[in-house]
Design a protein around this nucleic acid. Structure first.
Length: 105
DNA sequence: ATGCACCCGCGTCACCTGTA
DNA sequence: TACAGGTGACGCGGGTGCAT
């Protein structure tokens, strides 16, 4: 699976949260603590956004493949029908030719 | 039993297109 | 113009048939 990007991202996110936990408990000035809180919130929001996007795309891909399969099956059915039709018409033509030949003779 | 080629389905990314 | 959804392309893992 091509999860490399995902893995690296979740990996870094894991590291970050660990760092953030450490930072919040350490003696950071209030301004910096708030700023880091905001940035960590932004970060987790963007991660959530990405996960939502991936989830939606996963389902979209599944649906897209299902539709494509159905479409191909439909085309295959159509081919079968047309082949039968062609066979029947060829038979009909042969019979008509026969009739015509007998009339001429 | 094992190695190999092939197929299938999946998740993800990148791109395109339609819509608000 | 930003955003959402559809889809082709790619790489991966698992299943299967076949030759050795």
């Amino acid at each position: 699976m091509a999860v490399t990007g995902d893995e690296t991202e979740t990996g870094t996110s894991g590291d970050l949260t660990a760092c953030q936990l450490h930072n919040s408990s350490s003696s950071l000035p209030q301004g910096e603590a708030e700023a880091s809180g905001r940035s960590s919130q932004k970060h987790s929001e963007s991660i959530a956004k990405r996960e939502l996007r991936l989830m939606k795309n996963r389902e979209a891909a599944r649906e897209c493949r299902r539709k494509k399969k159905e479409y191909v099956k439909c085309l295959e059915n159509r081919v079968a029908v047309l082949e039968n039709q062609n066979k029947t018409l060829i038979e009909e033509l042969r019979a008509l030719k026969d009739i015509y030949r007998h009339k001429v003779e």
